[in-house]
Design a binder for these strands. Structure first.
Lengths: 338, 338
DNA sequence: AAGCTCCGTGCACACGTGTGCATCCATCGA
DNA sequence: TCGATGGATGCACACGTGTGCACGGAGCTT
């Protein structure tokens, strides 16, 4: 139904190949003819068919982005960065959510393969290397975000979570805390382990032992997971005076649980988060956190991908690291004097 | 480079048309032959080309979703619902963000048209009807979410904001409040006007006049907009004892501003939001709000779209309305006794 | 045994775009 | 005047898939 170059050709009394060349500014077409054809094309409402073009050029000018959950405030910021950069370069974006579900994951990767995407950006920490390999075997370049799989078979860009974990811990120690807990979560994957590693390294650097009971874990990375995970620690004697949470969402849960327990933050308990999700600033008290540059993480991943699509395939996987900064707000303070 | 049906045909010593039919379970191919070819196809790692298929069938099995900003916690929930429903039906999703920017908006609509999407779901309240008409002229069915343009040239599904606004206001009045303010925002578009209309209707139904100064407006729909918008009202004498905010994000800003002003919520000021963004529950105090079924809004929009793609074009635009429910938490209470 | 039906398969073209090559014509130099 | 040059355009095929139609053969009826 839509207008094709053949329709234009008929009206312009030329061959469709001439129209094709004119629209692509081929040098063999004289300027005035090209101009005439272009005017005709816009007047007729011509919109090129991406499908036909991809078929011929074997380039779809589309990228896939796989997330665990688009409603995650962290991921949605990353995706925003990706979308912006990708759009600027004239690419389109397929959005796919995997929900940590194996079946779903295979389904979306399959659909991306059918679409013949030029590349995929994966923000899904739980995705299985084996399934990704399938895509890569297909010749699709891959960029992983915050997912340092030990396989390292793909390019990746990641936030330096070890450094971030150290910075947060250092801040708490500088305030005078000595009993500091880390609240992680298995669903955090490598990120949670890295932040924990930073925490442990900084504790060790200060000559502090991590007591049993200070390594906590919540069932998920949301507020409910924070509430559940902090439970045991509040009953500890002596109680930790500060807790470093895997992310801001869990920290929100901790804040609420602390309030329910009658603890004042930060007078009785200091709470630090991670990511600087945009609501962190509006928590009560406003959350001390480590600001991951989410938007830039997405942008950089997209740019890396675009570079990969331009130049030749690098032999070695490219691994970029990005750093954030500590944001001290009101949820952390000196420990209570005993 | 990828395997095509021709490659399979060569190996199976049949014509490519036979392979095509076998894979699509055409009844003219006997079962055992079809089985043989299918096995061969999976063994060879065949993945059909969506581009070629679309070209031939003039169906892309892809939908476009246009949002103002994917990082918006409300929209990202809606998109999640869309993605789920769409994926289930075997469709893919193009994500496009318009950012209330005219140029960007035309750009993304154009790219969706080039992709020959089968339909578009628009969650962008600011999008211009004229630009949408362009797409529709192209034969692309449109479903608008929460965007009742007076033109009504497209199908739409919307939350009943008037009813929601009434419910929130009724709740505040039932608590005993008489001086109730509404904090809206121009960027909220029709939604803000509808919630305000509900507020005014309910006030009128109780025989209460809306005093000048009770209709407030913030510059944007985020916490900063709430902070800015509530400013004047706090200085009013007598001060409103309750404020109904356009959405939860603005309410968060109001909560913070109230704290800064030394007001206790809800003892001195009741604050109600709208949408039930998932952080509302973790605000301090937990926010009373009107829960819009965001996820279902997305699902229903997607299903409506899928129905449209199945059946014949309806003559009349379809307009569906969906209702939410009031969630009473701790940010609202009886007015202070004077 | 001839003709019919029906089943399985292949041929050929189509979708919309891109491109190598041939063709045609005008211009120029010898 | 003729051949060479080069610019403008058309022809034909390709990309991967789907489908109408024809063809050939097997099995049946008359």
């Amino acid at each position: 139904m839509p207008v094709t170059i053949k329709d234009i050709a008929r009206r312009a009394r030329v061959a469709h190949s001439t129209v094709s060349r004119a629209l692509r500014d081929d040098s063999s077409i004289p300027a005035h003819t090209a101009e005439r054809i272009k005017r005709l094309a816009t007047r007729m409402g011509y919109i090129p068919s991406a499908a036909a073009r991809s078929l011929k050029t074997t380039q779809s000018r589309a990228l896939g982005v796989v997330v665990t959950n688009i409603a995650d405030p962290f991921l949605s910021e990353v995706v925003r960065g990706i979308e912006e950069a990708v759009r600027e370069a004239g690419y389109s974006l397929f959005l796919a959510a995997a929900y940590r579900d194996r079946e779903r994951e295979r389904l979306v990767l399959r659909s991306l393969a059918e679409r013949r995407i030029d590349g995929a950006i994966i923000c899904s920490s739980q995705i299985l290397p084996a399934d990704l390999a399938e895509l890569e075997k297909f010749g699709v370049p891959l960029v992983l975000i915050n997912n340092q799989a030990p396989e390292r078979f793909a390019h990746s860009i990641a936030h330096d979570d070890v450094a971030g974990g150290r910075a947060v811990t250092r801040h708490l120690l500088a305030l005078g805390h000595r009993r500091v807990a880390y609240l992680g979560t298995p669903v955090g994957g490598q990120a949670s382990l890295d932040r924990q590693a930073g925490y442990e390294a900084e504790m060790a650097a200060h000559g502090l032992a991590v007591k049993p009971g200070w390594l906590l874990a919540g069932p998920d990375s949301r507020p409910a997971g924070g509430q559940a995970g902090i439970g045991l620690a509040l009953a500890l004697a002596p109680r930790p005076t500060a807790v470093f949470c895997f992310n801001d969402m869990m920290a929100l849960g901790v804040l609420q649980r602390a309030r329910q327990a009658g603890l004042r933050v930060p007078a009785d308990l200091s709470v630090a988060g991670f990511d600087d999700v945009f609501v962190a600033e509006y928590a009560e008290p406003p959350l001390t956190t480590f600001a991951q540059p989410k938007h830039r993480l997405g942008q950089d991943a997209a740019r890396l991908m675009l570079d990969l699509l331009q130049g030749p395939r690098p032999k070695q996987p490219i691994v970029k690291t990005i750093r954030g900064e500590l944001l001290v707000r009101a949820s952390t303070g000196p420990p209570p004097r005993v």
